[in-house]
């Protein structure tokens, strides 16, 4: 894979990374049109795939890869598109499978820990739509790993019991949407 582009991805240089992001963004949408997904799903998938690409470049996974960066990125995206269809319980459009790829198919061993799964991305949408109080409480619990007492203290709640009830309420909101 083009070592210059890989080096650009690893660099902390935002402009260089942005140039690559923009370079493939339009082409990815062109490529993914055939799956007839809406733009918000595609944008979501492109971001996730690009994030995985950066992570793979940082942990040295790209060095041995033979194909172009574009092919690699699109394969990750395609993997996620198929996953989305599976999640929604739908079939991949027949027509999309018939299209012959211009670039070679490659088999990517895709480490799920580098990206959020389809179910997680769905959950993320609902999480971001929660009110700020809920987001704060859930972050204190799941990210910081605080106990109910500590949560009550941080979030300015009366006691651990109130924190427990509030957390339960927030989880309930999320569950109802899934």
């Amino acid at each position: 894979m083009d070592p210059k582009k890989v080096a650009d991805l690893i660099s902390e240089d935002r402009l260089k990374i942005k140039a690559i992001y923009d370079l493939f963004r339009g082409q990815f949408f062109g490529f993914a049109r055939r799956y007839q997904l809406d733009d918000s799903d595609l944008s979501d998938i492109y971001q996730e795939a690009f994030l995985a690409l950066i992570k793979h470049s940082k942990n040295g996974k790209l060095e041995k890869v033979q194909c172009s960066m574009k092919t690699y990125l699109f394969q990750i995206g395609k993997h996620m598109i198929y996953d989305l269809f599976k999640y929604k319980g739908k079939m991949v459009p027949y027509d999309a499978n018939l299209r012959i790829e211009r670039e070679e198919e490659i088999n990517i061993t895709f480490d799920q820990s580098d990206a959020l799964s389809t179910a997680q991305r769905q959950l993320r949408k609902y999480f971001k739509a929660l009110d700020e109080k809920c987001r704060e409480l859930l972050t204190l619990f799941y990210y910081r790993g605080l106990t109910l007492e500590e949560m009550a203290d941080k979030a300015g709640l009366r006691n651990a019991n109130v924190a427990k009830v509030q957390k339960h309420r927030c989880l309930e909101k999320l569950r109802n949407q899934m």
Partner: peptide, 17 residues
């Protein structure tokens, strides 16, 4: 899953993307 999501929100790379 929720734990993953909450953690992901704190990832600076994800924020940049």
């Amino acid at each position: 899953n929720l734990r993953e999501v909450v953690n992901a929100e704190k990832d600076p790379l994800r924020k940049m993307v």
